[in-house]
Design a binder for these strands. Structure first.
Length: 482
RNA sequence: GCCAAGGUGGCAGAGUCCGGCCGAACGCAGCGGCCUGCAGAGCCGCCUACCGCCGGUUCAAAUCCGGCCCUUGGCUCCA
C-alpha cells in the first residue's frame, strides 16, 4: 500500500515517489503577515501538518520549510495603525508573533525553517540577474519583468494560455511591459529614510532602489533552503494562478530543472456560499475559534473534510465537529480507564474488539495513503470508539490486550498522526483539581445515598457551570473537565 | 469570456481515479427502545438517499462517455 497524491500539475492522482526514497523536501506557501490568521489559513496549516506527520509516520525524513511574506503592500497599508508598528518591518514582526502564537495553539509540528522575504533579498536579486542573463527577463524603467513568451511551458500548472490571459498588475506598469501577462520580478521604488512611507521598504539593486516582485520570494527562499527541485509544494487553491504558475516559470527558467515534483492544493473554506477571506470580512479568527471551542475541536473541524475538497464553515458545521471530537476523546478516555482497571494477566478475549483494532489501523492507513483522506481516517478511529464502547458496556471483565492495543492505536493514529492532544499533561495542579472534584463528588454521593437528590442535582449543575461534566455510572460518578 | 473544481439523505460529508463488497461510510440534528432515581454518556433501531437533469455504453454505473442546467474558486493582494 503506497501513498497516492493528487498532483495539480497533471490533474491526476499519482504514486508518491520523492527524489530521495528516504526523505521529502516540503515547501508550504505561508502567510502574508498583514493581519490575524483566520480559519481558512488554519485549514491549510492543519492539513499540511497532517501530511508532514503522515510522511514521517510512514518513514520519511521530512524537511519542511514554510515562509512568511513580510514585504507586501498590504503590510505597508497598516503601518501606523494602533499598536501594530510604524514601519513595514515592525508591522510584519507584530503579525509574525501573533501568527506563531496561533500556530502553537493548534499543536502544529514546527517547520525546519520559517524564512522571511526581507532576509532573502540578496538571493532574490541573484535570481533576477540570472533570469536577465538567460534572456527570460528584462529591465524596464528600473523594474524587471519576466517575459512569459520566453518560457514555453508558461501556463502548464493552471492550464492557461498566454494569449487568452488578461493583463497582470496595475495599469501604471502595463506600459512598461512587453506582454500584458508579464509579471514583475523587481519593482522600482523610492527609498524612504524610515523604511515606511507609501512605497514600503526598499533595497538597493543593480536596477536601482526597489522591492522584490510578488512571486519571486518563494522561488528564492525554497531554492535557498531546499534546493532546486522540491518534492512537494503545498499552498491554497487560490494561489494556483498566478502565484504558483509564476513560481514555476521563474524557477525552471533559472535552473533548467523541474521546480516541484508534486503540487498539492488545499481547497478553500467557504462560509455563506463564498470563500472565507480577510478582504470579504467574513472570517473567524483562529484565536477566537480556539478559545471558544478548543484546539482539538477546531482541528477536528478542519480535518473532517478532505484537504482537496471545499469545506463549509457555519456555526452548525463547527459544533458538529465539537461533538465528533468529544466522541473521540470520550472513547479514548474510556479505553484508558478500562485498561487501568484490569489485571494485565486476565485471559479474557473479545474477538470483535481485537478485529476492530486491526480494522481501524488498516482503514486508517488506507485512507491516509489515498491522498491524505483525513475524513475517512477519522471515521476509522470513530468506529474503534464504537467497538470500545460496546466492549466496555457489554463485558463484566475486559480484554486487557485488546484494550491496550486500542489505546495505542488512538495515541499513535489520533495523537501522533492527526495531531490531537489526547492525553492532558497531568501536572501537579491538574491532579489537585481532580482530587477536589472527587471530593465534591463524594459529598454528592452521600446526598444521593440519603435520597437527597435535589441537593445532588444542584451539585452536578454547579459543577457543570464550572466546566466539569459529571456522568453517573454503575460504578459511581465520573467526570471530565472541559 | 477563458481556466479549474463541484452538484450525494434535514445538515454535513466520504465514496467517483481502478464500474459489481454502495440496498451508499463516519458524524450532527430529530424520533423510538435499552440502561438509569433523574440527566448525561453509551448501546440498538428509525428518519435515510431513485447519488443535479437528459441520453448512451455495460450482464452491472453515484462511479465510464456525450449534452444541458446550476454553484464556487482563479484570471487583482489572498491559505
Amino acid at each position: 500500500m503506497t501513498l497516492q497524491v493528487t498532483n495539480t500539475l497533471s490533474g491526476d492522482r499519482e504514486p508518491f515517489e520523492p527524489q530521495d526514497p528516504d526523505s521529502v523536501l516540503l515547501y508550504y506557501c505561508g502567510l502574508t503577515v498583514s493581519d490575524f490568521a483566520h480559519l481558512g489559513h488554519a485549514r491549510s496549516w492543519v492539513h499540511v501538518d497532517v501530511m508532514h506527520r503522515w510522511l514521517e509516520h510512514v518513514g520519511y525524513d521530512v524537511r519542511h520549510v514554510e515562509n512568511f511574506t513580510d514585504v507586501n503592500e498590504k503590510i505597508v497599508a497598516r503601518t501606523g495603525e494602533d499598536d501594530l508598528g510604524d514601519t513595514e518591518s515592525e508591522v510584519a514582526r507584530t503579525f509574525i508573533g501573533e501568527v506563531i502564537e496561533d500556530m502553537r495553539s493548534l499543536n502544529l509540528k514546527r517547520a525546519e525553517v520559517y524564512p522571511r522575504v526581507s532576509e532573502h533579498v540578496p538571493e532574490i536579486v541573484d535570481l533576477v540577474e540570472t533570469l536577465i542573463e538567460k534572456g527570460y527577463a528584462y529591465e524596464s524603467n528600473g523594474s524587471v519583468y519576466f517575459d512569459v513568451t520566453e518560457f514555453e511551458e508558461y501556463g502548464k500548472l493552471s492550464n492557461q494560455r498566454v494569449e487568452e490571459m488578461e493583463a497582470q498588475g496595475e495599469e501604471s506598469e502595463r506600459a512598461e511591459k512587453r506582454n500584458p501577462a508579464d509579471f514583475a520580478l523587481w519593482k522600482a521604488g523610492e527609498a524612504h529614510p524610515d523604511n515606511a512611507g507609501p512605497g514600503g521598504q526598499t533595497w538597493d539593486s543593480p536596477w536601482g532602489e526597489g522591492r522584490p516582485g510578488w512571486h519571486i520570494e518563494c522561488s528564492a527562499m525554497s531554492m535557498t533552503h531546499l534546493g532546486e527541485t522540491l518534492d512537494v509544494h503545498v499552498g491554497g487553491q487560490d494561489l494556483v494562478f498566478p502565484h504558483h504558475e509564476n513560481e514555476i516559470a521563474q524557477s525552471e527558467a533559472a535552473t533548467g530543472e523541474q521546480f516541484a515534483k508534486y503540487w498539492l492544493h488545499v481547497s478553500l473554506l467557504e462560509t455563506g456560499g463564498e470563500k472565507m477571506s480577510s478582504s470579504l470580512e467574513n472570517y473567524f479568527t483562529v484565536r477566537n475559534a480556539v478559545s471558544e471551542f478548543g484546539s482539538n475541536a477546531v482541528r477536528m473541524f478542519l480535518l473532517s473534510t478532505a484537504y482537496n475538497s471545499r469545506q463549509t464553515y457555519s456555526e452548525e458545521t463547527l459544533s458538529e465537529a465539537v461533538e465528533r471530537w468529544e466522541r473521540l476523546e470520550r472513547g479514548y478516555d474510556r479505553a484508558v480507564e478500562a485498561v487501568d482497571g484490569v489485571d494485565a494477566r486476565t485471559k479474557v478475549e473479545d474477538g470483535d474488539l481485537r478485529a476492530a483494532v486491526a480494522d481501524a489501523r488498516e482503514s486508517f492507513a488506507g485512507a491516509m495513503n489515498d491522498d491524505f483522506n483525513t475524513r475517512e481516517a477519522i471515521a476509522a478511529l470513530l468506529e474503534l470508539v464504537s467497538a470500545v464502547n460496546r466492549h466496555v458496556d457489554d463485558r463484566e471483565t475486559y480484554d486487557y490486550r485488546a484494550l491496550r492495543d486500542a489505546v495505542e492505536a488512538f495515541e499513535e493514529l489520533g495523537g501522533e498522526v492527526l495531531g490531537f492532544a489526547l492525553a492532558d499533561d497531568a501536572e501537579g495542579d491538574v491532579r489537585l483539581l481532580d482530587e477536589l472534584v472527587e471530593l465534591v463528588l463524594d459529598v454528592r454521593e452521600r446526598e444521593r445515598e440519603s435520597g437527597n437528590y435535589e441537593r445532588a442535582d444542584d451539585l452536578r449543575d454547579e459543577l457543570a457551570a464550572l466546566g466539569v461534566e459529571v456522568q453517573d455510572t454503575d460504578d459511581g460518578a465520573t467526570f471530565r473537565i472541559e
